[in-house]
Write a protein that binds this DNA or RNA. Sequence first.
DNA 1: GCAAAAAACTAATATCATTAGGAAACCACT
DNA 2: AGTGGTTTCCTAATGATATTAGTTTTTTGC
Lengths: 189, 189
Amino acid sequence: MPRAGLSWEKLIQAGAALADSEGFAALTLAALARQFDVKLASLYAHVRNSDDLKAGVALLALDLLAKWAESAVAGRAGKEAVVALAEAHRRFAGEHPGLFEAARFPLSAEQAAGSGGPRLARTMLAALRGYELSEADQVHAVRLLGSFFLGFSLLERSGSFAHSQPEPGQSWRRGLDALDVTFKNWKTT
Amino acid sequence: MPRAGLSWEKLIQAGAALADSEGFAALTLAALARQFDVKLASLYAHVRNSDDLKAGVALLALDLLAKWAESAVAGRAGKEAVVALAEAHRRFAGEHPGLFEAARFPLSAEQAAGSGGPRLARTMLAALRGYELSEADQVHAVRLLGSFFLGFSLLERSGSFAHSQPEPGQSWRRGLDALDVTFKNWKTT
DNA sequence: GCAAAAAACTAATATCATTAGGAAACCACT
DNA sequence: AGTGGTTTCCTAATGATATTAGTTTTTTGC
């Protein structure tokens, strides 16, 4: 019988798709083995263990998110850049729920350093260039922005906003307006 | 031989402690059975299944967080209330990492409705009473605040802030200052 | 075409979760 | 105190996932 032709990349790709369709919790070696019609143990030729697979998907998720962020910010500045960045985050959470969850899988220091995380941080810094903030304030602003993006997307997806009016999208835009004003008046506050 | 004297409450309590000390992922029926020196199957007299245990711990976590929030807000108003609420969240994440994670375990609609979640939301609304916001703006503000608390605590705990200066605590305070100003000037922005 | 490397397999072990059914402890009530 | 019923806990069996060791088979490079 011919080989299945697996590889690290194929497994991670399939794992990402599986996470998005079935949830990150459903991302198991056994499920992938079934999908490729291969015995479970065979996967160990390509992946160290289950956590290695999850870390791989996490790295892919961070890379993709960083990519989305980069193309959102490209060619924009000020509020326009911030809003585009925000939409990239929120759309990512909505269209790739599994990857969005995967992106919070704990990584080793080396893995994290080489991940899309730092790239994402740099992109967020770039988006804030139009606001004329000090070095330290830029970091504060990126953290504030990142916290809002992540927290809002999580709460929205978990249904925490589902039982109060008005619709979450309004709060989202209102929050972005507020952050824009905050960045514009940063020194004075 | 005498009985172990288990109960739903004891299991949930022990589960909460276990989650905090070993991580939410380590919260398993098998681990609790070992801890109480009881056979794994015996736990099914008190808990429907593994998810039931996790949901129970999640409910305890939300209750405790709501309690912390309530006592933080009690007797305070305006920025003082917001800051106290914020510190409650951040301390909770730091002192109860397992419960903080458990609080994001997906609950059924009925479970969520009876959880500390709605109480927490009401408490946050109360904390904003001093700012004179319209009904809808209060909701927007609560969502903005909640997103910041959750997102910041997550990113801080995950180490996302560890590789940039200044220290996260500064960004935290700076973010709260900014939110306070935002709420004060809400109508004008 | 052959030897080495890589990929896949079988087999064994461990942990966790779950259900079914039986035994023993506990409680309420006489 | 004894007895009946309820509840707790147990044993036993099954199935899913993960992991390692050792073996076979395919592929590939010379």
